[in-house]
């Protein structure tokens, strides 16, 4: 995991007001993860981002336990899947009071980027699987669960909320979604090897 550093910020005084609502319809990412590399030497330029996933999970869990006293650490599991950060200057800039619908002062918490983590309440997780096409070996797998969602804003604020979820899809029948206790989810990021560039020479 790359380390956090401080990036210089250019002073931009121009305020651009725009309200866009664009939804990605299809975004086939590189499933094979075989990509064309730009003409830059490996590590020749500084990365524009850095993330401390273990700490992110730790502080999110701490806030979840603080906000929801009926939830214990052992109740929570996390799906072994990606953690996403979305950046949008038009969204989440201001926190809206969901009771009064008042916008707080401009100098209040603000965020360009935010991360969302979903902690599933272990005992509520129900997995369902139906054979979709026995000839090709595909199944329709779904899960139902109750959860506590944590949103970590760029300002450092963390919001949590209870919710229910249902999702699923058609996958190969031998593919199974994996859910991990919090400590194991963190260990996935702390136990991995440093970035390597093996097999670089023919």
């Amino acid at each position: 995991m790359s380390r956090i550093s401080t990036f210089p910020l250019a002073v931009i005084l121009t305020a651009i007001s725009i309200c866009a609502n664009a939804d990605t319809r299809t975004a086939p990412q590189s499933s094979a993860k075989t990509l064309q590399k730009a003409g830059v030497a490996s590590g020749s330029q500084e990365s524009s981002f850095a993330v401390d996933i273990p700490r992110l999970i730790e502080v999110s869990v701490a806030k979840v336990l603080e906000d929801h006293e009926d939830v214990q650490l052992d109740d929570l599991i996390i799906e072994q899947d990606g953690i996403y950060f979305h950046c949008n200057p038009a969204a989440y800039w201001r926190f809206v009071n969901t009771v009064t619908l008042e916008l707080p002062d401009q100098s209040g918490p603000a965020s360009l980027c935010e991360a969302r983590l979903v902690f599933i309440l272990k005992d509520t997780l129900k997995k369902n699987s139906q054979v979709a096409d026995s000839a090709s070996g595909y199944c329709f797998n779904t899960i139902d669960f109750e959860s506590v969602r944590a949103i970590v804003y760029g300002s450092g604020a963390i919001e949590t909320g209870r919710g229910k979820g249902h999702d699923g899809g058609t996958v190969l029948c031998d593919e199974h979604r994996v859910f991990l206790p919090v400590d194991e989810a963190i260990a996935q990021y702390t136990n991995q090897e440093k970035p390597t560039e093996d097999s670089s020479s023919p």
Binding site: N21, D23, R25, P28, Q36, K37, S44, S47, A50, P195
Partner: peptide, 18 residues
Amino acid sequence: ENGDILVNGGNGGAGGSQ
């Protein structure tokens, strides 16, 4: 994370309203 940039990371279509 090492700063390398990949330029063929996929493509697709999107839409929206404004």
